[in-house]
C-alpha cells in the first residue's frame, strides 16, 4: 500500500521560492495570483496494515520539520 505525506510551510513562514514563482507567473501574464506556497509530496510504499499514526510518526521524526512545516498523511 501507499502512504502519501504532504509537507507544507506553516502559515506565516516566509517562502522565498513561492514568492519567486509568483513573480514569474506575474511576468507570464497571470496577475491574478496573489501568493504561492511551495511544499512537497513524499510517497511511501509501506506494508499492508501500516497505520496513519505510524506514518505521522515518520513525518514528525524526519519527513517534516515541525518548526516550520505542517504535514498531512493519506493512506491509499
Amino acid at each position: 500500500m501507499k502512504a502519501r505525506v504532504t509537507v507544507s510551510l506553516k502559515p506565516g513562514v516566509l517562502d522565498p521560492q513561492g514568492r519567486a514563482i509568483r513573480h514569474a507567473l506575474d511576468g507570464l501574464g497571470f496577475p491574478e495570483v496573489s501568493d504561492v506556497r511551495v511544499g512537497k509530496i513524499i510517497e511511501l510504499d509501506v506494508v499492508e496494515g501500516t497505520t496513519e499514526e505510524q506514518v505521522a510518526e515518520m513525518a514528525r521524526k524526519l519527513l517534516a520539520n515541525t518548526v516550520i512545516e505542517n504535514f498531512r498523511v493519506e493512506l491509499a
Binding site: 513562514v13 516566509l14 522565498p16 521560492q17 519567486a20 520539520n65 518548526v67 516550520i68
Partner: peptide, 17 residues
C-alpha cells in the same frame, strides 16, 4: 543543530534565492 532541536528555529532558502 537546528534539525536536532539542540538549537531553535530553522535555516531556510536565502531570501534572494
Amino acid at each position: 543543530l537546528t534539525e536536532t532541536g539542540l538549537l531553535p528555529g530553522a535555516l531556510m532558502r536565502n531570501a534572494g534565492l
